[in-house]
Amino acid sequence: MVNHRELTVNGIQMHIAEQGQGPLVLLLHGFPESWYSWRHQFQPLADAGFHVVAPDQRGYAGTDRPESVDDYSILHLVGDVIGLIHALGEQEAVVIGHDWGAPVAWHTALLRPDIIRGVAGLSVPPPRRAPAKPLGLLEQRFGQGFYQIYFQEPGVADAELGADLKDTFRRFLVAASGDGAGAAPVVPEGAKGFLDAMPTPEALPSWLTEADIDAFAEQYERNGFTGGLNWYRNIDRNWELTAAWADAKITPPSFYITGTKDIVRTFGAPGFLEQLPSIAPNLRGILDLEGCGHWTQQERPDEVNAALVEFVKGL
């Protein structure tokens, strides 16, 4: 049974969901999600002998949402992970992240390998430092309509995504999945916003229910999308803050899971899977799920659970 409580972490109140006893495994969600995106992983990891904890990360759902954009840098987010580990009374943990949670997990392993026993990323691979500020490079490649550029203006995407929570989650989750039409990463010319590229689905895929849509919508009633969007508004700042680790390797044991229909793969360079060991030399394996879209652990829970249990038990 998944239990819920709040902890004080780095001066904010953080909501966590947890199950099981044993070595600590942290599950870090992405955008636009919450602890609930890991609903299928709690029981298998707890049954395997682990204390599984999935927080609502800074600015999301049941966790406090600081007002300043500057309070959402990658150093704040890594600091929250380390603070949470200590708040739980532990000195080390395995961190597993999906979407935005993956860069947080990868950077936590990069910056604090003394605390991280192992790291796994879903969808987003280990970071390879860009030669210049990322947003400018992304605009050159994809244009001003690229979603990460569109997300920069405070209040704009916040209002669009928050106007009808259930409609936003229904469109976004289906479009970016392996069952959807694909979430266009570029706001169409002349469109009112990001969601215009995502049609309202006639029916939900088998992995997603109306109860799931309701759960996400209910959790977003408190904070809306601004906290999560503020993570995007720190992309260039993160590049500046992490300059000292430009050539550093991710040394803890690692694992990567991706899907062949994940939209994130369109952003990366060809052959990026073959390049991963140069960034994470202790890479234990890669699971490439045929036909899986962006919501990896929700779309393909059985395969993801088996791989994660094998990875964490092998540490």
Rank of each mutant, 00 (worst) to 15 (best):
F255I: 07
G190D: 07
N305F: 03
N3R: 10
G30S: 10
C292L: 04
Q41G: 00
F194K: 04
T251M: 15
S123E: 11
A280W: 06
L24R: 05
S254R: 05
T108H: 06
F255T: 06
V2D: 00
L289P: 09
E221P: 11
D262A: 13
L135N: 01
I115H: 11
G193V: 09
P103I: 05
S73Q: 08
L173W: 02
Q152T: 03
T200C: 14
D288Q: 13
I16C: 00
P23M: 08
S278P: 02
Q219G: 12
I115P: 08
G30N: 08
G293E: 00
E18R: 07
H4N: 10
E299Q: 06
R141E: 14
E290Y: 05
G178R: 05
I115Q: 13
A120E: 01
I115F: 09
V304R: 05
P66L: 08
D80M: 01
F216R: 12
V78D: 00
R5V: 11
D64T: 06
H294P: 06
E299F: 05
I250P: 08
P188I: 04
P127W: 08
Q297P: 13
F255Q: 09
K313H: 14
L122V: 00
L88S: 03
E202L: 10
A197L: 04
P201T: 12
L276E: 12
L289T: 07
A244W: 02
K133T: 11
L45F: 02
P201W: 13
V304I: 09
A191M: 00
R300Q: 15
G180L: 11
P113Q: 03
W245S: 11
Y220G: 03
V9H: 01
G285F: 01
L138N: 00
P134H: 00
V187T: 14
S254M: 06
L122D: 00
Q297D: 11
I257G: 10
Q144W: 14
P44V: 00
E299G: 08
I82Y: 10
R233M: 10
L161Y: 07
Y60V: 07
I12R: 13
G268Y: 15
I213D: 04
